[in-house]
Design a protein around this nucleic acid. Sequence first.
DNA 1: ATTGTGATATTGTTAGGACATATTGGCTTG
DNA 2: CAAGCCAATATGTCCTAACAATATCACAAT
Lengths: 250, 250
Amino acid sequence: MTPVWPDELFTDLDRTGPVPLYYQVSSRLEQAIRSGTIPTGSRLENEISIGERLGLSRPTVRRAIQELVDKGLLVRRRGIGTQVVQGQVSRPVELTSLYEDLKHGHHEPSTEVLSYEVIPAPEEVAEKLSVAVGSDVLRIRRLRGTDGVPVAILENYLPKEFTDIIEADLKSKGLYQLLRARGVTIRIANQSISARRATADEADLLGESRGGPLLTMERIAFDDSGRAIEYGHHCYRPELYRFETTLVAK
Amino acid sequence: MTPVWPDELFTDLDRTGPVPLYYQVSSRLEQAIRSGTIPTGSRLENEISIGERLGLSRPTVRRAIQELVDKGLLVRRRGIGTQVVQGQVSRPVELTSLYEDLKHGHHEPSTEVLSYEVIPAPEEVAEKLSVAVGSDVLRIRRLRGTDGVPVAILENYLPKEFTDIIEADLKSKGLYQLLRARGVTIRIANQSISARRATADEADLLGESRGGPLLTMERIAFDDSGRAIEYGHHCYRPELYRFETTLVAK
DNA sequence: ATTGTGATATTGTTAGGACATATTGGCTTG
DNA sequence: CAAGCCAATATGTCCTAACAATATCACAAT
């Protein structure tokens, strides 16, 4: 019943390096599933025997499998076993900037900085960033495109201590990448996705018809310590961009 | 430094019932955070002392906390501790139908069944549902509203064995609710969100201007065993609906 | 033919312990 | 006084062990 898996899945793990064992296991499994080595719909061996094969305890194997369950690749049922989900699984919306998103998709992202200025925080921005109204915030407005075609208008607000982000760097790097280089890691983001008509200004920038539909995304991002770091308001050309997610019922 | 928490957080847990201990703990903590009893930005006690207070082992406490980290309410850093995220956390997009979504938001959902028919599966639908092209599938088209105002047009396709879903029931219940009553649990869904212009037909149904923007969502849902159960294509009035998500970097 | 019962397989929950690693801050030393 | 080392603290990883809950199947009983 259980299909025979290739030996590569069970070669020795690296117990000396910094990569956790559960992560090594889940990575191998994910790769095997996405490549079709483990076919969709098939059943996995049970946790204990996988553990025996790899020389791991059950909790470690369990954690590896749980990672893939959370990603939506596997389904578990008590008393039954673990199965691979049928149908192609889309990679979820990740916590990356659009720039990295596009680059990952083997496109050549381009950026034009439309404006870059320090302004007193309007009420809406102040509230989202948890700073005082009127205090200095950095406002960045960019036009993002791929392969020469405009895709999105990005408007971002950051607290004043980030005003040393160099305008020139924004042309060749994503905002999150620049923040990471400064030692700031974005950990959590609250997103809200909707749509609206394009204004005349936006339509011209994006090469879209006036009053045409735009996909919009509003986001507040928090760092390691839970502090609000960035408030963004983006709009995308809907024919060229969409948000993909995998939802898993707990 | 550590704030004093109310005793309610540490009253005895129910060790007899079917509710897991880690779930009882994470529920209490979540409630305390959302209600402000544990203020945003504050630090939690460490895992071990929480465990001692509740009479629990460290793995159990750890799992409870991890649940809230995954939900985006808490942030953990090795060597530092666990902190509550600043800023209001939005509840994530859950794996529920729009009907339950709206009902939860204290609105009164209404449904008009526009069409209900068994048709041979077009290529696109057959592929998404992993059935043969031309095989029978159930097609449902509904107009969903709240408080008398139309909000969305829902088009769903299901495999033929669900043709016994009663058309009349769709008026008063959500599709997922009806599936659950049949013993089918939706476990995983792949969603894709974008936008487009409304067709004349759609604009009339939704009371929207012709050519106006619509928020669109495409979804394939899988059940417990990983089988494709439903393929849906929905469009929403963007002023009345939006998708909210919390993203957490792993 | 249907129902119940028990054996088996598998995941779910909880415990308790050990060691690793990252961060902070104080102490020591040059 | 500054730099570096070290202890304290907290989370991260991994192990062994046990029992609970659920689904399946064979088989007996009605």
